[in-house]
């Protein structure tokens, strides 16, 4: 493959002064990106934690910065499916849906986002947020973070605890470090 050939070039120029090398490596990286972009026909396969394999278009793949960097830097053999052990097939299909709509649905994007959010319960929302964080998809991550913010804004600490399923450990600690914590309580 072309990528491995370029990889050899990197090895060959390793003896040059550092600044020259850095510049050349940058050039090579750009070359590689271009090559990856040119290989439009070639879909990349991703394997989820429950052993399902997805064929993903390069345009969608571009959103997944983590997978993209795997392909770019490690010269991974793209004929083998890339394993994603943290992501279930259900979440990956949701993610692909979102990325697709975000790219191609310019007219009813807000409407789609509303429907997308409605279809998720709190637990699924959390899982998806972690998946978006893991795959480093900025659009989805920002969208989900904003959704979380909307859901907990103007709510009481009790509601937030329930929402995130958090145990209240403030009382026990408060008695231990009363002066340090008091300030924050009366801020409220």
């Amino acid at each position: 493959m072309v990528i491995t050939a370029k990889g050899k070039e990197i090895l060959e120029i390793a003896e040059e002064p550092e600044y020259v090398m850095l510049a050349k490596v940058e050039d090579l990286k750009m070359d590689m990106l271009r090559i990856v972009e040119e290989e439009e026909i070639k879909k990349i396969r991703l394997k989820t934690s429950d052993e399902a394999t997805f064929e993903v278009e390069p345009s969608i793949l571009k959103e997944m910065k983590r997978v993209q960097s795997l392909i770019n830097t490690e010269a991974i053999d793209t004929s083998v499916a890339i394993p994603l052990p943290n992501i279930t097939s259900r979440n990956l299909s949701r993610i692909i849906d979102f990325c697709w709509e975000h790219q191609y649905n310019t007219e009813n994007l807000e409407e789609f986002k509303g429907r997308f959010l409605k279809s998720l319960n709190h637990q699924e929302l959390k899982e998806l947020l972690l998946a978006a964080n893991y795959l480093n998809i900025k659009t989805l991550f920002d969208f989900l973070c904003n959704s979380f913010t909307d859901l907990i804004q103007n709510e009481s600490p009790e509601f937030i605890r329930d929402f995130f399923n958090i145990l209240n450990d403030t009382n026990s600690v408060k008695s231990m470090h009363a002066p340090a914590f008091q300030g924050s309580i009366d801020d409220d």
Binding site: I152, S156, P157, N168, T170, V173, S184, I185, D187, D188
Partner: peptide
Amino acid sequence: DLLKCKCVCM
């Protein structure tokens, strides 16, 4: 809102 969040947990 962050002031309320301070009381959620340690």
